[in-house]
């Protein structure tokens, strides 16, 4: 008796698949996972848009950011009574166009992000590698300093650094870069320590690879995923902290159109001119949200173990 002869066709409950399918390429898989996350994609789109706005600020902005229109102090936004299409989002107490200031402020926020992340990432990775690779005294020294920095609330540490260096945008960026260092040091150190004991590192060491080569070419790529995620999220921290310092009058100084600085004396106008305090905050929120969304998306796509 042969079962097959009785019921050959019905016997295949499985929809026949066309041959063997290969698992997708890692990069493709990353992209399909990243782009399936609508939030992350939205974040990316907003960030690209912000980059364009920053690059083309001079062309897009209706007015210069520091031009004071003395005939139009505290003009409400265009859609409100007394508003005019000349100043779409209204003007501030000295008659500057808020929209133009926001557009130019994009440059500062993105620059702050780039400078802070570049600085803290490079120094942090370097220190983390030293600590993780050499261990011993170097590691202890670096990690104790990191512990101390972690014991201080970030903004307080930044304030302390600004107190030493004096207020200003450059000093604020430096202060923030110092404050966020510990995170990069810790991530790199952990990754290096994790990788150093692996066979492939031993293999390349045995085959005569130098320390620098070992670190940057063999070990570092393996720590890349968490570092990329941290760097993306670092943008939002940098922008937020710089805005906070600007708000406290210790970051970028007036008349710089930095978003936080724009809010510094907005509290006075809370009863008379809501638009003065509203729009810069919306700009900060949207930008920070975009970077956080992208950071979350990257984390999920790059490393499922890091999923939150």
């Amino acid at each position: 008796m042969t079962v097959a002869e009785q019921a050959p066709a019905q016997a295949a409950p499985m929809p026949p698949e066309r041959g063997a399918e290969a698992p997708p390429h890692p990069l493709r898989e990353f992209w399909s996972s990243f782009s399936a996350n609508r939030g992350a994609l939205g974040g990316l789109i907003v960030i690209i848009a912000l980059v364009f706005i920053a690059l083309l600020a001079d062309k897009i902005a209706p007015h210069a950011p520091t031009d004071q229109f003395r005939d139009a102090l505290l003009t409400p936004p265009a859609w409100q009574d007394g508003g005019s299409t000349r100043f779409l989002l209204g003007t501030d107490p000295v008659g500057r166009d808020i929209l133009s200031r926001l557009i130019h402020g994009t440059r500062f926020s993105l620059m702050i992000g780039v400078v802070v992340v570049t600085l803290s990432l490079s120094v942090g990775v370097f220190l983390g590698m030293l600590a993780g690779y050499f261990r011993g005294i170097i590691d202890n020294l670096i990690m104790r300093v990191v512990d101390v920095m972690m014991a201080l609330p970030s903004l307080l540490l930044a304030l302390a650094v600004v107190a030493i260096l004096g207020p200003g945008l450059v000093n604020a960026m430096l202060a923030i870069a110092i404050v966020v260092l510990p995170q990069y040091v810790r991530i790199t150190r952990a990754a290096v320590m994790n990788e150093v004991s692996r066979e492939y590192v031993t293999a390349s060491r045995v085959s005569g690879a130098g320390v620098a080569r070992l670190m940057f070419i063999t070990i570092l790529p393996n720590a890349l995923a968490p570092l990329i995620v941290q760097a993306t999220l670092g943008f939002s921290t940098a922008i937020l902290d710089a805005a906070a310092l600007g708000f406290l009058g210790l970051g970028a100084q007036p008349p710089t159109p930095e978003w936080g600085t724009m809010l510094a004396d907005a509290r006075e106008f809370i009863r008379r001119a809501w638009w003065v305090m509203t729009f810069p905050g919306v700009a900060i929120l949207i930008t920070v949200l975009a970077f956080n969304l992208m950071g979350d998306g990257l984390r999920d796509a790059l490393d499922p173990r890091l999923k939150t």
Binding site: G39, L263, R267, M277, T278, P280, G281, L285, L289
Partner: peptide, 20 residues
């Protein structure tokens, strides 16, 4: 979504907004 927005909030501005 709400949590991420809260997490991204510049809280000095959030304070101003709530006062307003």
């Amino acid at each position: 979504g709400v949590a991420l927005t809260g997490y991204s909030m510049p809280i000095f501005w959030w304070a101003l907004l709530l006062i307003f």
